[in-house]
């Protein structure tokens, strides 16, 4: 299994250059059954990463481009009248797929954004009085522009909490950018790429991740971190239990990607900024601010 995963990561590295950590983080997030939020400036390769992940995992995916006039029914689907049969039948929306690329999610109104809510947490959709299960595995990979950009609606906190991780891509290094400039078009490359996993394999991995051992010592460390966010004055509100669970799961997932059967403090430290950053975000909405909170957290809590 590990060689497959390593191969997958290598493949991804060839498309998105110099961003191995972000790719690993995204995979860790998805293997931990979490949804992923990619936040950065336009043109940094957010959508490419999302598409790439879906393709490489061999999952069926739909893309929803969020705009300010997007309606909930555009996401969930709507009942449509069949004139031949003389009755309404449900026309499933683009959310009924294994990977949803919610592109520029903060461009839509809160109403449309919240349509994704139920899908993300419950992995089911209730429409027209009927609850329908979503396929397994189910991921939402959302991208968003920094909220200070014009024409954006900041995501409600409840929705923030539902994303296990939020990652930033950042500018590529000089060398990587050179390769982008000289190499082939990424969108064409993307088409040529072959899936490395099947959806069954993804489900298998998802079931293996929670079995990665978390020792008491590590749980102590985790809880110390969480307690710190709850008691420190620099964070407006502490991590929720969902947050601490996300922390543990993604650390497990990271350890799994590393081919280990136990979590070590470094796993927690590496995933921590992506897991807690958006949960502890204050209303300054400053990107650097969120990462500094995470850094402060890591610096202040000793490893027991």
């Amino acid at each position: 299994m590990n060689t497959t995963i390593n191969f997958l990561i290598n493949q991804a590295n060839e498309i998105i250059l110099g961003k191995e950590k972000q790719i690993r983080l995204s995979l860790a997030c998805l293997f931990a059954r979490g949804h992923l939020l990619i936040e950065d400036l336009p043109g940094m390769g957010k959508t490419t990463l999302a598409q790439l992940l879906a393709r490489l995992m061999g999952l069926q995916y739909n893309r929803i481009q969020f705009t300010s006039d997007l309606l909930p029914s555009d996401i969930i689907g709507a009942a449509i009248y069949d004139r031949d049969k003389g009755e309404f039948y449900f026309h499933p929306g683009p959310v009924f797929t294994q990977v949803v690329l919610a592109d520029e999610i903060n461009r839509a109104t809160p109403k449309a954004q919240s349509a994704l809510l139920e899908a993300m947490e419950e992995r089911q959709i209730t429409a027209e009085g009927e609850t329908r299960d979503l396929p397994e595995p189910f991921f939402v990979i959302a991208t968003q522009n920094p909220t200070y950009h014009t024409g954006t609606f900041p995501l409600p906190e409840s929705q923030f909490d539902r994303f296990m991780m939020r990652i930033e891509l950042g500018f590529p290094s000089r060398q990587a950018e050179r390769s982008i400039l000289t190499g082939r078009d990424r969108s064409i490359l993307l088409q040529t790429i072959k899936p490395c996993l099947t959806s069954e394999q993804v489900l298998k991995i998802q079931s293996l991740v929670p079995q990665v051992h978390v020792s008491d010592a590590l749980l102590d460390y985790l809880q110390d971190l969480v307690d710190f966010t709850r008691n420190d004055s620099s964070t407006s509100n502490g991590l929720s239990p969902r947050g601490s669970l996300a922390l543990m799961r993604s650390a497990q997932s990271w350890a799994f990607l590393d081919g280990r059967d136990a979590v070590i403090p470094e796993d927690v430290q590496i995933i921590l900024p992506s897991v807690v950053g958006h949960r502890l975000r204050q209303y300054t909405d400053n990107l650097s601010d969120t990462s500094s909170i995470a850094q402060k957290l890591l610096k202040s809590v000793a490893i027991p």
Binding site: I264, P265, E266, Q269, L298, K299, S300, A302, I303
Partner: peptide, 8 residues
């Protein structure tokens, strides 16, 4: 460092 993991 107090916050430094063993591998780091």
């Amino acid at each position: 460092m107090a916050h430094e993991g063993p591998i780091d």
